[in-house]
Design a protein around this nucleic acid. Structure first.
Lengths: 236, 236
DNA sequence: TTAAATTTTTAGGCAAGACTAAACAATTTT
DNA sequence: AAAATTGTTTAGTCTTGCCTAAAAATTTAA
């Protein structure tokens, strides 16, 4: 049975592994869990002993199969609890991370599976991140693009955020952006990558900083159905 | 901020204090939390340092005002989570204690209060025990009697269990007894205090051992309304 | 009222997990 | 290629919480 601290380390490594290929550095892990590199280093050899990470001295670590299974389970619990907090207790999406951080360590397979069912087997957490299933693999997630890379003149819908810390989420609140917001890229400014976008429910153009555009997942929204009439038989 | 271990000790002391008046012994506490008396003794001086218990060497401890406040908060969380597990996740009342034992240590005032509201501000947990309110005091609980002490020939309803461990609760299941069961004491056997009772929904008399009768809270059930007609004007 | 039994505390260890300071390895810079 | 910088590990210490074994205090029995 992993301790709370061990679970936090495994989760941190999982998080750092995605994106960066290869091994993860001790210092990065330390920073993520809020400890000194020395503490992280000590933890890494303990995790290595238990077979949860592969540790090459001075070159970082990577999760083993077993370590990954545990980390995915934690992630699953975290994201399910976030759904519960938002959907049923009325929390905002920028208030749930810290609490889920505690709830995720409650260890009961039965509890998690029943919670999953209670929530209706959700595929995504309140920030649009995929929730792993009971098998430890992600449920299918729709194709998505970063807003920063989306083409112009398409009807888009915000489906997720990248690495959504509370500060970023609150900033989105200020901008009036949330999951499901519909928008269109009107102009891309090559100077710094900032975008002029038009929101479906607002008149004016709005300028979005590249720091925002690079952290929003969007998908093409299903276009409103267009009714096409045969050319030579217009309606009366 | 108390640790999980500290919270468990405070809860154990609270539990032992009710009933037994005066101070609580180190050994009893040790047994309750599953540690040796030596460990409990060490913990008591730590709790004393932090002002959560009054510790008279060799004569046991009692909770201070502050200690009691913390312990009641834990109890509140425990019982609210039990309600959640039974009411919304479909657990049986003999399956929830262990899980609630973990959930109770999740520390967020906001979470607990929202959970309370979500559950509809329940007064009792699934075992019929009172749930402390946000102020740390019990919500009003109806008058109740132990079945072992209830008078004969009254319509009674089971409203709670004393000290309901999972084994006892499962035994009640075998006997077909649950919260809300209606029964009448037909005969009290002075030999050992066992009772012959008749359940409202069953024909035969059933014999209940004193070990069961002493651990069931009952209340007088509202008698079915009796329609009384004036004597000299019977209905047609 | 001593002696025996019980309960409680102290003493001395151990493991997890954190820290600082110092040593060591790897990477950049010059 | 040597020097400086950066990153990682080791060494030594601290706290919490647990343990066993032994000492001290209290209670019970003779």
């Amino acid at each position: 049975m992993p301790t709370v601290s061990v679970e936090n380390y495994l989760k941190a490594i999982l998080h750092l592994e995605e994106g960066e290929e290869g091994r993860v550095s001790t210092t990065a892990i330390a920073e993520k869990v809020g400890a000194t590199p020395a503490s992280a280093s000590a933890m890494m050899s303990r995790l290595g002993d238990r077979g949860w990470v592969e540790h090459e001295r001075y070159y970082g670590v990577s999760l083993t199969e077993k370590g990954q299974r545990i980390a995915m389970e934690i992630l699953r619990r975290h994201r399910l609890w976030e759904r519960f907090l938002v959907d049923h207790l009325g929390f905002e999406w920028d208030q749930v991370h810290e609490i889920a951080e505690e709830l995720e360590h409650v260890d009961s397979r039965e509890l998690v599976n029943r919670l999953d069912a209670f929530l209706g087997f959700p595929k995504l957490d309140p920030h649009g991140d995929a929730i792993p299933g009971p098998n430890g693999r992600f449920r299918s997630v729709a194709a998505r693009t970063l807003l920063a890379e989306a083409p112009r003149n398409l009807d888009l819908v915000v489906v997720g955020v990248v690495d959504g810390g509370d500060a970023f989420l609150r900033h989105l609140g200020v901008l009036g952006i949330e999951l499901g917001s519909r928008l269109t890229v009107m102009e891309r400014h090559s100077f710094d990558g900032s975008l002029h976008v038009r929101f479906a429910d607002v008149d004016e153009l709005q300028l979005l900083a590249p720091s925002v555009c690079a952290r929003l997942w969007v998908d093409q929204s299903n276009p409103a159905p267009v009714i096409v009439f045969p050319e030579n038989d217009p309606p009366s």
